[in-house]
Design a protein around this nucleic acid. Structure first.
Lengths: 223, 223
DNA sequence: TTTCATTGTAAAATTATTTTACGCAATTTT
DNA sequence: AAAATTGCGTAAAATAATTTTACAATGAAA
């Protein structure tokens, strides 16, 4: 996560840098817009924080120039907080506008929100669960990969996932999973478990996820 | 340009409506969030303005529910202007946050800015959709290639695309797709699906996009 | 009115899923 | 160590849902 900043006030720049670095964001500041622009064309950045009141070129003009060459998310900050400027920024292709003075927390919030829009989540969510259910799409993913399951298989596995590792008895499945007939024999559960294993286990002979607990039933290890 | 608003204060709603209508924006307000939500699923809107302090459900919860089903741009307005709420909004997938009181001009600005972001898929938000609908041209393209579809076929497929991979039941299609007579038998849906498959699938016998979910309906895999 | 494309119906064919049955293997109990 | 229990894998049978087919109804355009 690396941010390019163009801000001519060294104190301000220092302040922001320190704050963001504390949040594990690398910031590179250029007090001179020309240098900043050339840095942008040579190195990859995730976001640009641009001050409006710059020496030499106007910030808006910088914004336009950036937007001509790059899709990078842009947050503009400015002491001039009048409406006209604001509109102009968006017109130039900025993604957010932050009137000075602002507190650092506010900036961080905007960074997150802008990045979210670009589908670049700052903190890659690390779900510790291997299996994730999407009821609406009738889909279960194992490590992000969607696995094809029949109705009963889907419901059974979803039930196990819901149970978070607790042992589930065959009776419990029979009564709680609607797509298996509750009058069926308990044996059919075994068959279905076998089929689910064939689909979710690397080596179905030595299951690592759907574990049988002799005499009790099965449990799911979802990690 | 049509906006859905969920705002329980009738005066406030009236004010905003009038202002926006003067700017040629159609606004439909629901004072009850449930009604608003259901409107959203039945009709197409360009943007949602959501009040946080609602009766019955919390605005944040409404936001989450909307975001689960839809990509619509969301602007949240609220009298509670604390940071926590603000972050929560963005976390729930809102696109902008507008603390009350605000003047109408400010709102209009936000609307434009949010819409601008959406129309400019700077980084393709939906990185790989195979099927794209162009309602105005009554056209659906598969990987850029426009495919000829009859009215009913078009609406059905468009409906699937809108649903983003969610399972759609035959009943749902019957009631939501206007060009199929809602008195028709559910079986006709299957026939139409078959016809659509013949047009969009490489091998209609082994569909890879319009997948049937036994006992539930169908879903579209749009990638 | 005729024609043509589209939509809807119904039955047959096909296919997928669930269930049962049974033999074998593994584990536990006696 | 033998017997009993429990779990596993396979295949066949039963069931149920989907797809295909052929054709009828509809409705808009010529």
């Amino acid at each position: 996560m690396k941010i390019l900043m163009i801000e001519d006030d060294p104190e301000m720049a220092e302040l922001i840098c320190e704050f963001l670095e504390r949040h594990h964001i690398t910031v590179e500041n250029y007090e001179n817009p020309h240098l900043g622009l050339s840095a942008l064309s040579f190195k990859p950045y995730d976001l640009l924080i641009l001050d409006l009141s710059l020496p030499d070129i106007d910030g808006l003009e910088v914004c336009r120039m950036v937007r001509e060459k790059s899709d990078i998310p842009i947050i503009i900050s400015s002491a001039r907080s009048d409406m006209a400027d604001k509109s102009a920024c968006f017109y130039m292709g900025a993604d957010d506008y932050l009137p000075k003075p602002y507190n650092s927390q506010e900036l961080l919030l905007r960074i997150h929100s802008v990045l979210r829009r670009y589908n670049k989540p700052i903190v890659a969510e690390e779900p510790s669960s291997i299996f994730m259910v999407d009821i609406d799409r009738h889909e279960i993913k194992k490590e992000g990969e969607s696995i094809y399951l029949t109705n009963a298989e889907f419901e059974i596995l979803a039930y196990f996932i819901k149970k978070k590792g607790f042992v589930v008895s065959r009776e419990e499945l029979l009564t709680n999973v609607s797509s298996i007939n509750y009058e069926s024999s308990l044996k059919s559960i075994d068959v279905m478990i076998g089929r689910i294993r064939a689909k979710i286990e690397v080596n179905p002979k030595q299951p690592r996820h759907l574990i049988s607990i002799r005499g009790l039933g099965y449990k799911l290890v979802n990690e």
